[in-house]
Amino acid sequence: MNYTDLACSGGNRWDELKEEMRAAASELGIDKIGVASAAPFTELKQRLIRHRQLGRESGFEEPDLDKRTEPALLFDGPQSIIAIAVAYPSKLPSPPKSEPGARRGVMSRSAWGADYHKVLRDRLARLEAWLRERVPELRAESMVDTGELSDRAVAERAGIGWSAKNCSIITPEWGSWVYLGEMITNLPLPPDSPIEEGCGSCTKCIDACPTDALVGPGQLDSQRCISFVTQTKGYVEDELMRKIGNRLYGCDTCQTVCPENRGKNWTHQRELQPDTELAKPLLVPLLEMGNKEFTSRYGATSSAWRGKKPIQRNSVIALGNFKDPSAAAHLVRILTDDPRPVLRGTAAWSLGRIGGAEAEAALAAALHKEMDTEVKMRIEQALQQIILH
């Protein structure tokens, strides 16, 4: 079929192209395709304004709310937005055990396998090439996660899934274990209809959130979300450090408790399958890791985008939460020798959690030579905690 004459093509031809595209999804490595209109996301803009007023943004988002909600500001003459979903695994095969003396952290599923940004860009590039073969006049702009548009808002409008109470898109077929991307085009493809919301009265995600970051159905306070906190670079407040547990990057709690995800685990996307030692790594070796080794081991995953410092800080926090005395010597080395104040201050907190004579002596010695005011304060707090307990 020839779709080249855009100006004269009838509506049926675009219907046929859309169905042909949907049928080709699997061979393109895409698990679901939907089409949304390119009209402004008016309701979303109002929610985003309110979100900002309440101070609930993460700071990782596109700051211009007009660009986030008006496709015409990003693309000349948008006619439709093609949304795609690619399913990813939710279970580790034969996960290694975390044991005394060999404690492990956990990476969220979004950091398993190859960086999903690259995988989704590859799938969108395949789709664009497929479309261009049929419509040489195609103009398209693709984006994944870091683009201006809201992936979830586009996916919801395109009928990929419904916007759930945990702020994920839940698809009937794949649950919420899907990565999302979109392509703005000049093709007048007929839009799909949104899927009816399917959460019902269930509030398991809201009830299970470790930090109460889900402040209501579909309402997230990003500043309290563990997934966000693990990706920050500064100090983490005491309450949140305790809630982080042994998470090194991201948090999956609101998805793992979701009934729609029960029993769902997808292993057909080869690039997204996990290396168990990277997904659940030993904590102490992470503390010793230099930039070159970190890049070699984690550079191809999505967890590497912030560098090794947040992950090493989270490793220090995890060791404190395990309260494993065998970790004290490693934390003392960081407290006394690491050039990064945030790492030294966090090591003090963890030593305070572990307690014992070795930790107390190391903290007392470090207090006398530490020059950083913030670190000194945290050492004092850690010593006080040991004394009180």
Rank of each mutant, 00 (worst) to 15 (best):
A304Y: 15
W305H: 15
W305L: 10
R306W: 07
R306I: 02
R306V: 06
G307P: 13
G307F: 03
G307M: 03
K309D: 13
K309Q: 15
P310W: 03
I311E: 11
Q312C: 05
R313T: 15
R313N: 11
R313P: 11
R313W: 03
N314W: 02
S315Y: 01
S315D: 07
V316P: 12
L319T: 09
G320R: 14
N321Q: 09
F322P: 11
F322I: 08
F322A: 12
F322Y: 15
K323Y: 06
K323F: 02
P325G: 14
P325V: 11
P325K: 13
P325M: 03
S326R: 13
S326H: 07
A328D: 03
H330C: 07
H330K: 08
L331D: 02
L331C: 06
V332C: 11
V332M: 04
R333I: 00
I334F: 03
I334M: 09
I334K: 01
L335S: 08
L335P: 05
T336E: 04
T336W: 01
D337P: 04
D337Q: 10
D337S: 10
D338L: 00
D338I: 00
D338N: 13
D338F: 00
D338E: 05
P339A: 01
P341I: 00
L343F: 04
R344T: 13
G345K: 05
G345N: 08
A347L: 01
A348Y: 07
A348R: 14
S350Q: 10
